[in-house]
Amino acid sequence: MTEVHVRPTPTATTLSALADEVPPVQHRRSPWPDRRRSALKHAGLIALCVLMLYPLIWLLVSSFKPTELIFRDVSLIPSEIDMTNYSVGWNALQYPFGRYLMNSAIIVLGSLLGNLVACSMAAYAFARLEFRGRKLWFAVMLMSIMLPIHVIIVPQYVLFSKLDWINTFLPLIVPKLLATDAFFIFLMVQFFRGIPKELDEAARLDGCGHGRIYLRIMLPLSLPALATTAIFTFIWTWNDFFSQLIFLIRPDMYTAPVALRTFMDSTGASSWGPMFAMSIVSLIPVFLAFLFGQKYLVKGIATTGIK
């Protein structure tokens, strides 16, 4: 570093003053070992990235290989692009795989609607309304985030089978319409609290009721939180397996993950190729959500995770 600061011996009282004027203290080592260190660091990180992604890329590449090659070839470069696995896999089960994707998509859409509407409504109440027992209900909501689903799934199954809802999408969608994904209530409460209260106070003075404040002020200003909710809902619902496995028993109602799993039961180990191909197909929507929604995903985890 070229700059040399002449400074007095720091004492506790001068420290805070110093912190403002002194540039970050990093000028002890000479630049060369620093560069070598950082090169080493990058090399290590890149090696780790390759290791982390290797199985995924290998899955993708293998989905284009004939099955017998999958068990002989570790390389990430396919010798030829062969779509047979995809056409075989698509039609290997009782229904074409598109049907299962469609079923997954229906459940995702219902869950999106539920989480966006019902959770944001509840979040508005917790963030902005004064009512008796607010703290208590808020605590109940927080605890429900941590409640294991297993303690309610058995009676839920009994309830839904009494209602004749087994083998329909209702057990998977209706709870979402009733804001049972409390994690998103929490996420939106966090976001709403950051919106200046002056805005809704001004709106109130202009005669807006809570309905209009929620619709016209809070929601439009909360698009990032809504986007985060939408992307997480999409990915988690698409990946969900436990409840879909329990509530969807007839093959025509299977979702993509449940159908994938029957691949393993019905076809045995002989058809890894087609199974890999359909695995890739079922991962593509999640991957796209990741690709286009990264910013919101990262922000979402960070803001609900810290402070």
């Binding site: 982390m52 992604l53 995924l56 397996f241 993950p257 890999f276 991962l283 990741f290 990262v298």
Partner: peptide, 23 residues
């Protein structure tokens, strides 16, 4: 780096990755 290292946690819960793991 953040994106690459984060990707597995999005896919890790899926049936597809579990199938991959089995292989």
């Amino acid at each position: 780096y953040r994106s690459v290292l984060y990707l597995p946690s999005l896919l890790g819960g899926s049936v597809a990755v579990a199938i991959l793991w089995r292989q």
